[in-house]
Design a protein around this nucleic acid. Structure first.
Lengths: 181, 181, 181, 181
DNA sequence: AATGAATGAGCGTTCATTCAT
DNA sequence: GATGAATGAACGCTCATTCAT
C-alpha cells in the first residue's frame, strides 16, 4: 500500500467523479473533500479545474489503451484482435453500467473556452484510430475499413449508454465481422 | 411574420442555447434575457429548467424526424432511403459545424435526478430505431441489420463531432452500403 | 352540502394553511391552488395576503370564542366555568398536536408593516380578557385575578406548543384552582 | 474594542435581525450586507440559514441565562430569587419594546423541515425549567410548583408582547407570590 | 509546500402583486 | 365576476478562483 502524493490523490478522486458523475456535475469542493486536500493545495498543483480534467484524460487515455491492448493480446492475428475489441467494449461498458466514454462525455457539454480538454479528446481518438488502422496494415482498403470500424466503436459506446444495454455493442461486432470478411 | 407567444419564444431561445452551447452552459438568466421574458413569467410556463429541456427535446424530435423523412422522401425504395439518410447526416451536421446530436449531448453530463430528460432521449432514439427498422421490413435479417445501421448513425454523429469533420459520416455511409448489399 | 362562495373557499383554505403551516410558510399560490380559485379572482375579494389573514383571524376569533363558551356552558357557576376553561385548552390543543394559538403564532414573525394583523390579534386577546374578567364579576380582586388567569392561559398555550405536551396546561389549571380558592 | 472575526460579525448581525425583525423577515442578503461579508464567506462558516439561527439561539441561550442568573444573584434566598425573576422579565422586556422571547418567536412560523431550530428552543426551555426547579429544591411540591411558575413566565412574555405592556408581567409576579407563599 | 478564509458572480427558484381581456 | 399571463424583486445557495499567512 504505497502512500499517494497529493497530486495523485486529486487526479484519482477527480477521475472517479468526472467519469461517473460528469464534469459539470463535479465541483472543486467535492473533489478536495473526497481527496482530503486543502483547496489552496489543489490550486498549487493545478491552475484550474480544466487542468485537472486534462490530467484525468491523460491518465484515462493511458489506462484505456493499455486495457484494450491487453484484452486482445492473446488473439493470434489482427483480424481476431479487431473483433475481440468489441468484446472488450462489452466487458468494459457492462462493468460500468454503460456509463460510456469519458472522452465523448466531456466534450458534449463544455464551456466554450476550454480548448485544452477538447485537444485531449482528439488526441485520444486519434490514437485509437492509429491502433485500429495498424491492425489493418495488410488490407488494401485499410483506410476505409478502419474508419468504418471506428464509427462502429463510437456508435456502440454512445448507443449502449443511451439504451443502457449491450445490444448496440453486439450489433457493432456483427457489423464488424461482416465488414472484415 | 407571426407574433410568437412567450412560451414559444422561451422554447426557441432555449433550444438554440441548449443545442449550441450545452445544457449546463446555459443558465436561466441567459434564456430569459435573450427571450426578453421576465423570470417569473418563464416559471409560469415551465416548472423548472428541466421542463424547458423536455419541451426543447420534444420539439427537436419532431423537427428532426420530419427533416430526415422529408430528406429521403424522393428516393424510390427503402434501400435508397436508408443510404440517403447518411447524406442527411452529412448535410445536417456540416451545417451546424458538427455540433452533434442534441439528444446525445444532453445525457452525457446531466444532474443525477433529471430523469425526464433521459426519458425524452430514449424516446427519440427508439423512434429513430422504429423508423430504420421499418425501412427494412422486407429483409429477413431486419432486426440485426437495423441495429447495425443504428450504431453506424450514432457513431457517425459523435465521431464527426469530435473530429469536426465529415469523414466519419462518409465511412458510416460506406459501411451501410456494404451491409445493405 | 351547501355550495361555498369563492370568498368562503379562500378563507377556509387559507385558515387551514395559515394555522397549521404558518403565515409565512403559506404562499398565495398554494392558497389559490388548494381553493381552486384563479389568482386574479382572489385579488378581487382580497386586496392583499394580509387581508386574507385578517379574514382568517376574524373567523377564527368567532369560532374559538364560541367553542370555549360552549365547552364551559354546562358548568353551574363562574368559578367552575373558569376552571373548565383549562380543560378546553387541553381538549383543543391535544387535538391539533399542540399547534398553539393562531393569534400568538402570527404576530411572532410578521412583516413590519402589517399592522392590521396585529390589530386583530389584540382585538381577540382583549375579548378573551373581557370574557375571563366577566366570569369574575363578583370577586373583589376581579382585575388582578383575571389578569393572572390570562397569563396562565397564554403560558399554557405557548409552552405546550414548545414542549408538545399537556403538562403546561395541567400546571396552569392547578395554579388557577389555587388562585381562585 | 477588539476586532471581530467574520463569524462573530455574522452571528451578531443575524441575532439582532432575527430577534428584532423575525427569522422569516430576515434574508441572507440583509445579513451579509449589514455584516459587510461576502455571501460565499458566510456560507464558509455556516452551511445554511438554519445553522446561523442555531448559532444565534445558542448564544442567546447563554446570554439570557447569564443575565437572569446575575439579575437575581443578590437575593438572599431562593424564594426571593424566584420572585425577582419576574422583575428581570420586566426590565428585560420593557427594554426591548416587548419584543418577546427569541425562542418562542422563532418556532411559531417555521419551515416544516428545520428541526435543528426546534431542538434549540426545547433545549433552552428545558434549561429554564431546570433552573426554576432547582430554586424550589426544598419544597415538597417542587415539581408542581415549578411547572406553574414556568407557565407564568412564558405567559408573561407572550402576553406582554401582544399587549405591548407590562401588566401581564406584573400579574405573573403577583400570581407567583401567591403560589409561593 | 501547505492552508483556511474570503470573494464576485451566478445558480435555479419563489414571492406577492398587477395587467389586459 | 372571473381569468391566465406577466412582472420586479428577492429568495437561499453554489460556483471556480484568489488571498494572506
Amino acid at each position: 500500500m504505497k502512500k499517494q502524493s497529493v497530486k495523485e490523490r486529486i487526479v484519482e478522486t477527480a477521475s472517479d467523479l468526472f467519469y461517473n458523475n460528469g464534469y459539470n456535475q463535479t465541483g472543486i469542493n467535492q473533489i478536495i473533500a473526497e481527496a482530503s486536500v486543502a483547496k489552496a493545495s489543489m490550486y498549487q498543483h493545478f491552475r484550474s479545474k480544466e487542468d485537472i480534467a486534462v490530467a484525468y484524460l491523460k491518465q484515462r487515455h493511458i489506462n484505456w489503451m493499455g486495457s484494450l491492448t491487453e484484452f486482445v493480446s492473446n488473439e493470434k492475428n489482427n483480424n481476431e484482435k479487431l473483433i475481440k475489441s468489441f468484446d472488450f467494449l462489452q466487458t468494459w461498458l457492462s462493468g460500468v453500467n454503460y456509463r460510456g466514454c469519458g472522452f465523448q462525455n466531456i466534450i458534449c457539454d463544455l464551456p466554450k473556452e476550454q480548448q485544452k480538454i477538447k485537444d485531449q479528446v482528439v488526441l485520444h481518438k486519434n490514437d485509437v484510430k492509429k491502433l485500429i488502422h495498424s491492425l489493418l496494415e495488410d488490407k488494401n482498403n485499410q483506410e476505409e475499413l478502419g474508419n468504418e470500424l471506428l464509427v462502429l466503436i463510437e456508435g456502440a459506446i454512445i448507443l449502449s449508454q443511451i439504451q443502457k444495454s449491450d445490444w448496440p455493442i453486439i450489433a457493432a461486432k456483427n457489423a464488424a465481422i461482416k465488414l472484415l470478411s
